[in-house]
Simulated assay, not measured.
Amino acid sequence: MRRPRWWAELSLIAVVYAAYSGGRLLVKGDEASAVEHGLAILRVEEGLGIDAEHPLNRLFTSVPALGIPADFAYASLHYLVTPAVLVWLFRRRPAPYRAARTWLMLSTLLGLVGFTLLPTCPPRLLDAAHGFTDTMARFASYGWWGGEASAPRGLGGLTNQYAAMPSLHVGWALWCGVMLCRYGRTPLTKALGVLYPLVTALVVMGTANHYLLDAVAGVAVMGAGLLLAPYALRLADRIRGRAEAPPVVSGGCETSTGERIPGQRSVRTTADDKQASAR
């Protein structure tokens, strides 16, 4: 299999991420419906007794030694670890790279569909009566973010704060974990592959950026992307094969005896050829 070209991969990833970021910003949805969806998710969790984000958020808020590192992790690792794993796969594991990259991209685009169909208010933006504290805003003086998600201070308007369902923080972390566990060679690498998605799930709930069901939806989106990736790869190979197929000069038609293709040079008939024809 031909090794992917780094510049082509970089261009492809940049285009997909720009489309995802732009689309995520364009499908903000109205605040009322986003709040309604957030409260509906919270009611379902409370009814099932699985609203783990409540105790985690209280813990992260009351213990700054947990809350501040969690805010840093939420605001940075999502954008650092995933590209690092992609580069590592490209350089060290080129054989599975293409399938892994396709899986990640498809899942990301499926997440965009989720943001479009179900704009959701994260717990931190609900009314204070629901018992959540926005740790990103509470500890904003320790980092570069403001009170508007993980965007740099003053740039909150460039992010969609109602894109909580599904949690791609958890989805991307799961992808990274699978790659590290499957292709890592050392016990430490494999251990990080297990810990990273688990810690990310705790962070997104403890900082009140996502509900538990958002995390579950992030895992589901990655599962759907994994199932669709082989079909996308086969389609891409078919399109590439057609684009690279050499043209057929005669269009598949045979010429009759003595007929020449236009522009074809005539070949002088030798004496031996004449004798062979006479026989």
Results as ranks from 00 to 15, higher is better:
His169Trp: 09
His169Met: 12
Val170Asn: 11
Val170Met: 12
Gly171Pro: 05
Gly171Cys: 06
Gly171Arg: 01
Gly171Lys: 02
Trp172Ala: 15
Ala173Cys: 08
Ala173Pro: 02
Ala173Met: 06
Leu174Thr: 07
Trp175Ile: 04
Trp175Tyr: 07
Trp175Thr: 03
Trp175Ser: 00
Trp175Lys: 01
Trp175Phe: 12
Cys176Leu: 04
Cys176Asp: 15
Cys176His: 05
Gly177Val: 02
Val178Leu: 15
Val178Ala: 15
Val178Arg: 08
Met179Gln: 13
Met179Glu: 09
Met179Lys: 01
Leu180Cys: 03
Leu180Asn: 00
Leu180Ser: 01
Leu180Val: 05
Leu180Trp: 02
Arg182Ala: 15
Arg182Phe: 12
Arg182Ile: 06
Arg182Asp: 08
Tyr183Ala: 07
Tyr183Gln: 04
Tyr183Gly: 02
Tyr183Phe: 11
Gly184Ala: 13
Gly184Gln: 10
Gly184Thr: 04
Gly184Pro: 00
Thr186Ala: 10
Pro187Trp: 11
Thr189Val: 10
Thr189Ser: 11
Thr189Arg: 12
Lys190Leu: 06
Lys190Ile: 01
Ala191Val: 13
Leu192Ile: 11
Gly193Lys: 03
Val194Glu: 01
Val194Leu: 12
Val194Ala: 12
Val194Gln: 02
Val194Pro: 00
Leu195Glu: 01
Leu195Gly: 06
Tyr196Gln: 03
Tyr196Lys: 00
Pro197Asn: 03
Pro197Thr: 07
Leu198Lys: 04
Leu198Trp: 13
Leu198Asp: 05
Leu198Pro: 07
Leu198Cys: 11
Val199Leu: 14
Val199Gln: 09
Thr200Glu: 06
Thr200Phe: 13
Thr200Gln: 10
Ala201Met: 12
